[in-house]
Design a protein around this nucleic acid. Structure first.
Lengths: 220, 220
DNA sequence: AATAGTTTCATACAAGCGTTTGAATTGCAA
DNA sequence: TTGCAATTCAAACGCTTGTATGAAACTATT
């Protein structure tokens, strides 16, 4: 078996496992068993477990960013340099939502791995997360172009809320299904995306200073 | 030292550690070191590490639910049985946000522990999470009372989005701070709560069927 | 076909984990 | 003070983890 074959088998096996199980729960032996390679293969090809995780995260991160930016670019070109705010947000939340809610488990492993990496921060990943900030900044700038009058802080909050809703929809999907007794249909991917985009857009275009200040109830 | 003193020391030490570190990273030896008790004390007083985590989670879960429901009850009584939707949402997201963003680390440990338990699901906690569904259902019912015309599915989505924004605001606060370069002020707790409440309210009262269906770009 | 360089493999290792043990210590009633 | 139960403690247990090793198997060039 060639080098690249083994490397790829390990990467995809690790991705599959991390998509479904917590970082702390997946051992090197689980990974090599899933990949059907020898235990020593990981250390031989990647150096260490952490380096394997890092390489996996970086490669998937690049792929996700590329997918998001392609949609953003398409939306901005369609609008002659200024996209509708809805389309900017859809370019941000669409790829992960489509990836994670996709019934094809194989395809969705990458997306679910990324969501886990985003929520359940393990030291080795936290260190290379600076990359994500730069990526998101491109979206903040596109949003600012779309809404030139909007204060910068509101833009950031809107971006933050959009990510919040898409991430939690993926992570807490079981809770939502059980709470709603099936009334919320997560298999309708486009419907879910439309809901998230709509909610994020409304949150963003709301008045920045809420007219009703929050009372501070019973805080000593 | 009396039994209850040791039990309490272990519980609060575990809470402090879990508030700041991932579940996989905190060992029994870390906990007993923080609590300044002997290693065997955990197994003596709680039976096992999992039982310690379970007891901690249940007790904090009860406390959070009580705090939320007290605010909800107050809001509904002020409105003669029907609270403003904003106040229902504030009763839901206010306690965790106030708890987690509170500068007093000691007080906020409980809230941050709960958020971690909510995001980073460890098997022992997942098994007792059914409790949370029943708790949230009470909020869904209050929201339905506040918005009688609203379809049930929209109520659940609104509740889901409200939790999403409050949780991510706590979990990804470092990302938001760095992305915004400090423009988003998380130390203004009431301001943050007002933003989350406002965004969640708008997402909820938005038209349930978005007029702009999401196109499905370049999905093979 | 022989050889040099990769890659695989079974196995072992040290370290860390949660848990157990049995003796020492403590606290309190008689 | 004596005696008994509850609690603490140091030490060790068995197990799992990530990593290292050296021999075996494979690949490819000559």
């Amino acid at each position: 078996m060639s080098t690249d074959q083994t490397r790829l088998a390990i990467l995809t096996a690790a991705e599959r496992l991390y998509a479904d199980h917590s970082f702390g729960d997946v051992t090197l032996r689980d990974i090599v068993s899933e990949a059907q390679v020898n235990l020593a293969a990981v250390n031989y090809h990647f150096g260490s477990k952490d380096e394997l995780i890092a390489e996996l995260y970086v490669s998937r991160s690049i792929a996700l960013n590329r997918e998001r930016l392609a949609e953003l670019k398409a939306a901005e070109e369609a609008g002659n340099g200024r996209a509708e705010i809805r389309d900017v947000i859809r370019a941000l939340v669409g790829p992960p939502l489509r990836g994670c809610l996709d019934p094809d488990r194989q395809r969705s492993a990458a997306a679910r791995f990324m969501i886990r990496a985003s929520a359940e921060s393990v030291p080795v990943i936290r260190k290379i997360k600076t990359r994500e900030i730069g990526h998101l900044r491109q979206f903040a700038e596109a949003m600012q172009r779309s809404l030139p009058e909007m204060p910068a802080a509101d833009i950031y909050w809107g971006l933050h809320f959009a990510l919040a809703m898409s991430h939690e929809t993926i992570n807490a999907n079981e809770r939502l299904q059980r709470l709603s007794g099936g009334a919320c249909d997560l298999s309708d991917v486009n419907g879910v995306i439309a809901r998230v985009v709509e909610a994020a857009t409304l949150a963003l275009t709301a008045p920045s200073a809420p007219e009703r200040a929050a009372p501070s109830p019973s805080t000593p």
